[in-house]
Amino acid sequence: MSVTDRTRPRAAAAEAAVPARPAARTPLRQRFLGSGTRPGFLSYGLLIAFLVSSAYPLWWSAVIGSRSNETLGETWPPLLPGGNFWKNVGEVFDTIPFWLALGNSLLISSIITLSVVSFSTLAGYAFAKLRFRGRNGLMLMVIATMAIPTQLGIIPLFMVMRTLGWTGEIGAVVVPTLVTAFGVFFMRQYLVDVIPDELIESARMDGASMISTFWHVAIPAARPGMAILGLFTFMTAWTDFLWPLLVLDAGNPTLQTALSQLQSARYVDYSVVLAGAVLATLPLLVLFALAGKQLISGIMQGAVKG
């Protein structure tokens, strides 16, 4: 809003200063491409095209997933979903332990999120607000480790899990991602500006210990940042595929590894596969509808700070 207010008088000045320019443009072209302050039809047209390409693959999956395998052979796919969705979903339930997988995914992602957010906030607060010897050196280590692809250590990790007898258990999926360097970096960047130093000093003057200062001053200020980090950590844990595929078996899968079993069945019914894909996306669609704004501001804040 403030942008329009600021640009309008300037744009008017521009027209006054260079009278030849606006006259040279035909009004039609201006309506199409937009005047300086409001974009024209062309912009909205292109955005609608993007919207269609974003949404159509999902919609198409819902259409095929609610019909039968034969629909896939039709030249032009039908535009609307059919009535077979629940029948296909029933077959999904027969093929894979869907509810167990959903529960596992929820549990794994929640534990990882809780752990990453807690440890990142603690370390990020120390790096942002406390003075200690070796702070800069340690922070450099955090930044350097962010670029290291730790996922490539899967072979020793697998050997360790097998030695511990954890393969097939949820714990084996959780443990390798209990902390992330990105989380520490993100919370540090977030907390540097958010907590004024005076607030910490005055809490210390009042006799609060370090940990109680952290608890009563840092945590309340850190909450929005913790929510953003939590959202992304949850998404990353939820979408992970390679590691759970290695350490879990078909009887005790995550949602992602269970879904992949639909695809690799001997006889593949594509409408069932797509019904499964749609079913697994539904919870995230709901989350997106509720927290989409936060997700967007999280991505955009992370970009500016990162």
Binding site: L47, F50, L51, S54, A55, P57, L58, W60, S61, I64, L72, M235, W238, T239, F241, L255, Q256, L259, S260, L262, Q263, Y270, V273, L274, G276, A277, A280, T281, L284, L285, L287, F288, G292, K293, L295, I296, I299
Partner: peptide
Amino acid sequence: WRMSVLLPYIVTPVAVAMIFTN
């Protein structure tokens, strides 16, 4: 509009692979 461009991000890679493979 911002939400509309972010929509595909919430579909997991496994689901994306299943949809596009078909």
